Simulated assay, not measured.
Amino acid sequence: MTAQMELSSLLIPLLLFTLLATATPGPNNSLLTLSGSRFGYRQTLPFIFGIRAGITGLFILMGSGIGGILSENPHWYFYLKILGAGYLVYLAVKVAFSGNRKQHNHAANLIGFRQGALLQFINPKSMMMVLSCITAFSLPGELYLLSVLQACLIFNLVGLMSNSAWTLFGALISRLLSTEQARDKFNKVLALLTLLAVALLFI
C-alpha cells in the first residue's frame, strides 16, 4: 500500500471522530454559544480563531511526545484540570454577567484570540481530544509526521465549522428573544450549562 493510500484510508474515520469530538457540547462550544449570544458572530471570531490556534499548538506538543509525559504523570494532568476548570468558570461568569450587546461591543468582556488559544492548553477536553486523535490516526515510521499533519488539518477544518455553528446558534437565539430581560435570562442559562460542562470534566 502506498503512502497516499495509507493516509487516505484514515480520512473517513478521522472525519467521523473529529465531527463527534468538535460538534458535541463542551466548554469551548458552550462559551462560543454564550459569546455569540452576547456579542454576535463577528465579534466572536477572534475567540474562534484562538481556539483553532490553541488546538494546533496542542497537536504540535502532543505529537512531539508531551502526551506521553502527561500519561506517565497523571497528577500533572489533574493540576491542569483544576487550573482549566477555574479559568473556564471565570470566562463564563465574565461573559454572562457583562452588559448587553449595545453597551459592550468593546474588548473588555469579549473572549479574544489570546484567551481562546490559552484556554486549549488547560482545557482537559481539548487535550484528551487531541491526544486521542493522534493516538488513533497517526501512522508509524516515515508517515508519522504526515499523518499527524493530516489529523491536525482535518480536526481544525471540521472544528472551525462546528465552532461557527455553535456561535451562530447563540446569536440566532438571542435575536429571536424579544426583550433584553429574556436575553439576559438566556445567557445566564448558557453560563450554567458552561459550568455544568466544567463539572463533567471531573466525572
Results as ranks from 00 to 15, higher is better:
Leu10Gln: 12
Leu11Asp: 06
Ile12Asn: 07
Ile12Cys: 09
Leu16Ile: 12
Phe17Met: 11
Phe17Leu: 12
Phe17Thr: 07
Phe17Gly: 05
Thr18His: 10
Thr18Ser: 13
Leu19Cys: 03
Leu20Thr: 12
Ala21His: 01
Ala23Phe: 09
Thr24Glu: 05
Pro27Gly: 09
Pro27Gln: 15
Asn28Glu: 09
Asn29Ile: 00
Ser30Met: 12
Leu31Ala: 07
Leu32Lys: 01
Leu32Gln: 03
Thr33Ser: 00
Thr33Glu: 02
Gly36Gln: 11
Gly36Trp: 11
Ser37Ile: 12
Gly40Thr: 12
Arg42Val: 11
Arg42Leu: 07
Arg42His: 04
Gln43Leu: 11
Gln43Phe: 13
Thr44Cys: 00
Leu45Ile: 08
Leu45Arg: 03
Leu45Ser: 06
Leu45Phe: 02
Pro46Glu: 06
Phe47Met: 12
Ile48Met: 03
Ile48Pro: 00
Ile48Cys: 03
Phe49Arg: 05
Phe49Ile: 05
Phe49Leu: 11
Gly50Phe: 00
Ile51Pro: 01
Arg52Cys: 13
Ala53Glu: 01
Ala53Tyr: 08
Ala53Trp: 08
Gly54Arg: 07
Gly54Tyr: 05
Leu58Trp: 03
Leu58Thr: 03
Ile60Gln: 07
Ile60Asp: 06
Leu61His: 04
Leu61Gly: 02
Met62Asp: 01
Gly63Tyr: 03
Gly63Cys: 04
Ser64Asn: 10
Gly65Cys: 04
Ile66Arg: 14
Ile66Cys: 08
Ile66Lys: 14
Gly67Phe: 03
Gly67Ile: 08
Leu70Gln: 07
Leu70Arg: 10
Leu70Met: 10
Ser71Thr: 13
Glu72Phe: 15
Asn73Lys: 14
Asn73Ser: 13
Pro74Ile: 01
Pro74Asn: 04
Tyr77Ser: 10
Tyr77Asn: 10
Leu80Thr: 14
Ile82Trp: 01
Ile82Gly: 09
Gly84Lys: 10
Gly84Ala: 01
Ala85Val: 15
Gly86Val: 09
Val89His: 02
Val93Pro: 00
Lys94Ala: 15
Val95Asp: 02
Ala96Ser: 03
Ser98Leu: 12
Asn100Ser: 02
Arg101His: 08
Arg101Ile: 13
Arg101Met: 02
Lys102Val: 14
His104Cys: 10
His106Gln: 14
His106Gly: 07
Ala107Asn: 05
Asn109Asp: 11
Asn109Ile: 14
Asn109Phe: 13
Leu110Met: 13
Ile111Lys: 04
Ile111His: 10
Phe113Asn: 03
Gln115Ile: 10
Gln115Thr: 14
Gln115Ala: 10
Leu119Asp: 14
Leu119Val: 15
Leu119Glu: 12
Leu119Pro: 13
Gln120Met: 06
Phe121Gly: 06
Asn123Ala: 05
Asn123Pro: 02
Pro124Gly: 06
Lys125Ile: 02
Lys125Thr: 10
Lys125Asn: 02
Ser126Cys: 07
Met127Glu: 07
Met128Gly: 15
Met128Tyr: 06
Met129Val: 07
Val130Asn: 04
Leu131Asp: 11
Ser132Thr: 13
Ser132Leu: 13
Ile134Phe: 08
Ala136Glu: 11
Ala136Phe: 12
Phe137Asp: 00
Ser138Met: 06
Ser138Phe: 12
Ser138Cys: 05
Ser138Leu: 11
